[in-house]
């Protein structure tokens, strides 16, 4: 299937196109899934009356009732654990974790049960559970509100892990994740919640577990996901002025990885820069780098470089601009790759 670029979404005749934020697009995706299937439930802290601290579930409890949108007691292990039980009973729960740093009380249930039940039961038990996690930094928050824990989940067999980067994907990926019979850890880049795009509900979306070339270019490949996608697209625009033509790939799916488009790209450009807010050691970017050097060894003109958060706890917010990969750091890595 041809990959749509963000600038030119495919349009279907008669569909109502509207400008929406990512938070709204996620909300619309949830709503569409709940309308399509009465077994879809939303559970989490403050998701009902308040509509979530980011308002992603705004209005859902009002329209679908307290039995489908549950303001749960304050316990993440409880949220995930009961979602598993509901799934065994045939429901399709969508759990909200309020912030990335609060998923860990639920980590045991995710790793020990959610990830393994299909295998343990040899497919007799399905786990169509979505765990939504607002992730990443850049909003000036206090501790535990800016983390990028995706690698823990990508490292866990039995889980699928995706990250959206824009409102259009957010809308489609949410519905696809809910429709999936496997557990999906769904990362939402919280500092992009308010970014807007034209959403056309009439198009046919790409499959959920696929990466996508967002911008074509021949100088070097930049692969990224979640909040870093915008950073990299901005970097590509800036690089253009210097005659550098970057190819930007949104990985979208972190487990399973869809690296075909990355391999194709690197075989043409010979250079790869990976960008992520997560610490670099034993991470998703480490995995991508390994696979690329295996598959594209003879095409590489420079070592695979990474621009990531540091291998330190997330710093106090006055330091997050230094911690987070920004346009300058991405371009610095591109320069080093080109100069190699």
């Amino acid at each position: 299937m041809a990959a749509p670029t963000m600038e030119k979404p495919r349009t279907n005749e008669g569909a109502k196109v509207q400008t929406v934020t990512m938070a709204k697009a996620l909300n619309m995706g949830l709503r569409a899934a709940m309308e399509a299937d009465p077994k879809v439930l939303v559970l989490g802290e403050d998701v009902g009356k308040l509509g979530g601290v980011f308002r992603v579930t705004d209005g859902l409890q009002k329209d679908f009732g307290e039995q489908r949108v549950l303001d749960t007691p304050l316990a993440e292990s409880g949220i995930i654990g009961t979602a598993i039980g509901l799934a065994i009973r045939g429901f399709r729960p969508v759990c909200e974790i309020q912030f990335d740093g609060f998923v860990f009380p639920g980590f045991d249930q995710i790793v020990s049960q959610l990830a393994k039940l299909h295998f343990r039961s040899q497919g007799k038990v399905k786990m169509p559970v979505v765990v939504r996690i607002p992730f990443g930094g850049g909003i000036g928050a206090v501790e535990h509100h800016s983390e990028s824990p995706e690698s823990y989940f990508a490292h866990t067999a039995g889980l699928k892990v995706v990250a959206c980067s824009n409102p259009i994907d957010a809308y489609w990926m949410m519905q696809q994740a809910i429709a999936s019979d496997d557990p999906v850890i769904f990362f939402e880049p919280k500092r992009r919640y308010w970014e807007k795009a034209q959403l056309d509900p009439g198009i046919t979306p790409d499959p959920l577990f696929s990466s996508r070339v967002l911008r074509q270019g021949g100088s070097a490949t930049v692969a990224c996901y979640g909040p870093s996608v915008k950073t990299c697209l901005d970097a590509a625009t800036a690089a253009e002025e210097d005659g550098i033509d970057l190819e930007v790939i949104d990985l979208r799916t972190l487990s399973p990885l869809d690296l075909g488009p990355v391999f194709d790209s690197v075989r043409r450009t010979g250079r790869l820069v990976l960008v992520s807010e997560a610490p670099s050691e034993s991470s998703v970017t480490a995995e991508v780098a390994t696979r690329v050097q295996q598959e594209c060894f003879y095409s590489l003109e420079a070592p695979v470089l990474r621009v990531t958060g540091f291998d330190t706890p997330y710093p106090p917010s006055k330091l997050e601009e230094d911690f987070l990969p920004d346009l300058d750091r991405v371009l610095h890595a591109v320069d080093r790759s080109l100069a190699y």
Binding site: E45, D46, G48, K49, L50, V53, D71
Partner: peptide
């Protein structure tokens, strides 16, 4: 209260 949830939720 726990943010928006009254204590009966707990």
């Amino acid at each position: 209260w726990a943010i928006s949830e009254p204590v009966e939720r707990q």
